[in-house]
Design a protein around this nucleic acid. Structure first.
Lengths: 208, 208
DNA sequence: CGCGACGTTGATTTGCCTCAACGATTGTGG
DNA sequence: CCACAATCGTTGAGGCAAATCAACGTCGCG
């Protein structure tokens, strides 16, 4: 098993949070493709592990977006701040989610979004260069990311449908049902900014 | 060139609309991957060409979604009708766009969307089975669809951001700027249902 | 030609925002 | 560890954005 390799220089018998995080990353990728020891080693090399803490910004709106993130544990929020200061939350990423400002990552443009760590978290980052080279080094990654983007596309399309067809109250209900773990971790203000309404209005909805 | 092969049984020198459509399909795929003659032959076999006419439904909400469509020419609209009869347009597909109810196609579930042909069109359809088998037969398709879904995801995410952060008027302006060819082809009612507002309200916006 | 869908306009109602105030919670520095 | 500041969640009053409903002229189509 690959983990044994990574633990060669781990003198005691405990599994470090680094190892745990790495396991989560590899397990996530292996949901869709098969990896041998060499593949895992390669991924271990190109994915940089980081322990980040609450309130840290993984990306600041306006800066070049160079990294794709995998959240091994904890939570991250992606949001935009408009000229007049209004915040809009695009997505929350908790355990095992991938997140970045994808538009700006793929086109290497200035970020429309900021990425904010919501609690102390373990993440992996993959640089744009490694992302592009990865497809040559490990062609199966085409399949992995095909499925990842496929799911992401479907998710966003359903969100669009909900946003334009349902009432705010229905959308809030659906959010709570769909993402109960997120509801526990984030503030109501953040949920409001995800739904595109004011915190005050969300508050009145909740009274029922 | 591959087209020469397909034209063996084409006695005169004209290029049929079938050929033109096929060229568009192959050119679209070759934007992202390289195809040799055998690949093209394979794709020609699995993609079924159809000439469809205005008002035809490629998919009816509630039915099993079996096909993925490529619009070689013409236009198609994907929309949902809610229980109380309200229509919401999820997307328009014009020349060179791919369209289906992706969620239900990928999960082989009953369609949330109907697909309506807006004008006489040339489309190709790919069955779910062929879609899945295609990745074995032609592994480069992983890359092609990876990029296709990647772009689709980014597009939808930007739409979500616009929807929750901009006013209806701003969103209408952006739509006209972004998709002028679509504006020419579709009714105002359909644009309203894409923006998630009533036709009456869109009408008042346009007065300026 | 006549019907039905479309686009427009206006009157009224409803959903949601803005602004302001307040207690409760969280975070921070002394 | 406490005190203070800052942010959060709630509530209410008033205002604006958008929906609803109805009426009417126009256009495309059978």
């Amino acid at each position: 098993m690959y983990l044994a390799v990574t633990k060669q220089n781990n003198l005691d018998n405990t599994v470090s949070t680094d190892d745990e995080s790495l396991i989560r990353l590899l397990a996530n990728i292996q949901k869709h493709i098969v990896l041998d020891a060499k593949d895992m080693e390669y991924l271990h090399r190109v994915f940089k592990h980081r322990t980040v803490q609450k309130k840290e910004l993984l990306l600041l709106q306006g800066r070049l977006c160079r990294k794709l993130f995998f959240v091994a544990s904890g939570s991250v929020r992606a949001f935009n701040v408009s000229d007049d200061g209004k915040e809009s939350t695009i997505m929350f990423a908790i355990d095992d989610w991938w997140i970045t400002d994808m538009y700006c990552f793929l086109n290497q443009k200035k970020a429309l979004l900021s990425l904010e760590v919501l609690e102390d978290s373990e993440v992996f980052e993959l640089s744009y260069e490694a992302f592009q080279k990865g497809f040559e080094k490990l062609p199966q990654l085409e399949r992995f990311f095909r499925i990842l983007f496929q799911n992401a596309y479907v998710r966003e399309q359903l969100r669009v449908l909900e946003t334009i067809s349902l009432t705010t109250e229905e959308r809030y209900r659906n959010f709570v049902i769909k993402y109960p773990q997120i509801v526990e971790k984030v503030t109501q203000k953040q949920i409001a900014s995800y739904l595109g309404v004011t915190p005050e209005f969300l508050s009145t909805i909740k009274k029922k």
